[in-house]
Computed example of a mutant assay.
Amino acid sequence: MNLSYELTTERQMQLGLVVLQSDETLEYDMRRLLPEDVELLVSRVASGTELSTDMIAAMEGRLTDAANLLPRDAVISAVGYGCTSASAQIGSARVAELIKRGFPRRMSRTRPPRLLPHAARLGLAGLVWSAPISPASRTGSAP
């Protein structure tokens, strides 16, 4: 059987996302929210099922390694971290520093952000992604 193919150097806009090992919903939610022409590349950071200051402190030491697992040749426009509680405890600047250490490749700046037109169409002035933490996600058990 012969399968035809065509190689191309054009890529869709790529976004990176570091997600908690225990998170089962963020990837699905992000793929539903992002336009179809945006590619989401995901890595996982080792985490426990209980959210605590100790677990968050442990994740801080693992963020760089998690970001380093993103594809090396990707032209990622931005890398996000999918834990608002950890970002609040560790600090956004520190999270950005740790992710950049793991993904030091230059971020793409050649293509205009494709999310903003979608936000404007919805009447939004800007974008912020935040996910609530349910009691089930803190304890690892369902209600």
Rank of each mutant, 00 (worst) to 15 (best):
M1A: 13
N2F: 04
Y5R: 15
Y5W: 15
E6H: 06
E6T: 13
T8Q: 14
T9S: 15
R11S: 15
R11K: 12
R11Q: 14
Q12C: 14
Q12P: 13
M13K: 05
G16S: 09
G16M: 03
L17D: 01
V18G: 00
L20M: 09
Q21W: 02
S22E: 04
D23Y: 05
T25H: 14
D29C: 07
R31L: 14
R31F: 10
R32E: 12
R32Y: 08
P35F: 02
P35V: 03
E36P: 04
D37G: 06
D37A: 03
V42T: 03
V42M: 03
R44P: 01
R44V: 02
V45L: 07
A46Y: 03
S47L: 10
E50K: 07
E50Y: 02
T53V: 14
T53W: 12
D54E: 11
D54R: 05
M55D: 11
I56F: 01
A58M: 11
E60T: 10
R62E: 13
T64N: 10
N68V: 09
N68D: 15
L69I: 13
L70P: 00
L70Q: 00
D73P: 00
S77I: 00
A78G: 00
V79M: 05
G80W: 08
G80R: 05
T84N: 07
T84A: 04
S87M: 06
Q89R: 10
I90Q: 10
I90L: 05
G91E: 04
S92W: 04
S92G: 06
S92E: 11
A93G: 09
L98A: 10
I99L: 13
R101A: 14
G102P: 07
F103W: 10
R105G: 08
R109S: 14
R109Q: 14
L115P: 03
L116V: 13
L116K: 15
A120K: 15
L122Y: 09
L122E: 12
G123T: 08
G123I: 11
A125S: 15
G126A: 13
L127M: 05
L127Y: 01
V128A: 04
V128L: 09
A131P: 05
A131V: 13
P132R: 09
I133E: 14
S134W: 02
P135H: 02
T139Q: 07
G140P: 01
